[in-house]
Design a protein around this nucleic acid. Sequence first.
DNA 1: GCGACAG
DNA 2: ATCTTGTCGC
Length: 227
Amino acid sequence: MRIELIERTLQICRDRDLDGARALQTELQTYLNDKPIEKPIRMVAGIDTAYSATRAYSAIVVFDIDKGRIAAEYGASEEIIFPYIPGFLSFREFPAIYRAYLKMNEIPDILLFDGHGIAHPRGMGIAAQGGILLDMPSVGCGKSKLCGVYSIPGGKRFDYSELTMNDKVIGLVMRTREKAKPVFLSPGYRFAIDSIPALTGQITGAYRLPLPVHYADRLSKKLKPDA
DNA sequence: GCGACAG
DNA sequence: ATCTTGTCGC
């Protein structure tokens, strides 16, 4: 983990420093690179966050590709400090995610965030920033577009089109399930866009969201008091 | 000024 | 994201 960067991020959250947040996102662009880790991907950690009126509940579900099942689950909550502002989701969710991350007893091969990676105005969506701060390969899976242009992908499972911004391919719009809205996949940290189709094929089940995030989404909601 | 706008 | 019941379509 890059503790210095994590502390700076948390301080920006506490200060509700929007200008500082924007500056950090721009600064972190220099850390971006899609040089993949040489190790094959077997364990994928899905990450998602749910909310109550005052708290954020983050869940991390480690999915074992070979066994096709959940290997471990972690959850943690944190008081909501930063408001939701399009383009600054990291500062709202990272504090709770970090708490759950610290509870992990194993190190997954890659992190799959609910939200965008580099498909962001400043190339620093939560999957990108999260990967850099935790120093782990990462990918983002958003349920709707934040920025960029694309054509609607085919109707068959795994059909996809490119998400572009300023003539640069920043992600893929993939139909993970027939007759369901496509999802937006983009590289986070140390993971090439060309590797996204193969990874998605290995972790997508009968749901629209890839299994790791699907389960993390379900767990995060169960972490809430009422549920 | 207008439209867009992750979760 | 969250608030919410029934309901239309595959």
